[in-house]
Simulated scan of single mutants.
Amino acid sequence: MSSSISTPNSVRFSGEAGQGNILMGIIFAKALVKEGFWVVQSQHYGAQVRGGLSYCDVLFDQEPIDYPEAKNFDILYLMHNVGLSHIGNLKRNGILLYDEKFVENIPQYVERITKKIIKVPASQIAIEELSNKNVANMIGLGVLCSVTEVISLERLIEEVKSNVSKSYLEIDEKALKIGYALYKKRYPLESTKMYKKLGKGYE
């Protein structure tokens, strides 16, 4: 007798409170639900409303998720130096994305963990091309989803329309499109792994 245990994919959006990384995770999670995945989304706020560390975790799987928390992540998106300590939670050969304006010094040891490192000029583009630094999160979300091939641009835009104020719809859509087209690199996620566990007495 055996039972299958599935290990969900895991993503952490980490940054400074006020940068919009929580919204990134919420939109990402809701889009995954629409794609038919089982999803768990959680968020953590520091003591400071702005300036402190905040992060949002998303787990997703094609099977029901047994435990709603991850210690290590397949994808880590860093929006600010304040989240650099989370690099230690990146899985071997995982995907690291970071905003080059606010994450200045990626430790050299990271290259021993993974070669899948993407420097994202999200804040720079948001300021210089869209004149609004607040949409850097949507540029970053577009990059993450296109590089990993997890969620289509159309699905992201659909979820943005359902989760942001009308005054931000047009500029957020532009930001997503810019991010989605920014890189040709593709690091598709492996399918969630299934492990077979034999019941006691059936080894």
Rank of each mutant, 00 (worst) to 15 (best):
M138L: 02
A17C: 01
Y55S: 13
G94Q: 08
K197L: 14
E170D: 12
S131R: 05
I125E: 01
E63F: 13
M24S: 14
L198F: 10
E190T: 04
K101P: 06
E100Y: 12
V160H: 05
S85A: 11
E104M: 10
T7K: 12
T192S: 15
Q19I: 03
I157K: 03
C56I: 11
D99S: 01
S42A: 11
G15T: 01
S2E: 10
L23I: 04
S3P: 14
E111I: 08
V143Y: 02
N9Y: 10
A29C: 09
P121E: 00
C145W: 06
L59S: 02
P121H: 03
T192Q: 08
L153W: 01
G52N: 08
A31K: 04
T192C: 08
K116D: 00
K185Q: 08
E35A: 14
P188E: 05
I151K: 05
G51W: 04
P68V: 01
C145S: 13
E111V: 10
I127S: 01
N21G: 07
G52F: 07
L84C: 03
V135T: 03
A126M: 04
I27L: 11
K71Q: 10
P64D: 03
R50D: 10
Q48D: 11
K166V: 10
F73E: 14
S3A: 11
S85E: 12
L76M: 08
Y77F: 15
R112S: 15
V82T: 10
K30W: 09
M194N: 14
G20H: 00
H86N: 13
K161D: 04
E69N: 05
Q124K: 13
P121S: 02
S14F: 12
G36N: 08
I139Q: 00
F73P: 07
G52I: 05
L78I: 11
N134R: 06
Y109F: 11
P68G: 05
L182P: 12
N163V: 11
I22F: 09
R92P: 13
F28V: 13
R112P: 12
I65Q: 06
L169E: 13
G51E: 05
L53V: 12
V147M: 02
V110F: 13
Y67V: 08
S123A: 06
S131W: 04
K116Y: 04
S146L: 01
N137M: 05
L59R: 01
S42C: 07
D57C: 08
I75S: 03
M194V: 12
V49D: 12
Y183W: 00
Q108C: 06
N163F: 13
P8F: 03
R12A: 14
S165C: 11
P107T: 12
A47Q: 15
Y187L: 07
P64W: 00
K184G: 02
T148H: 00
I65D: 02
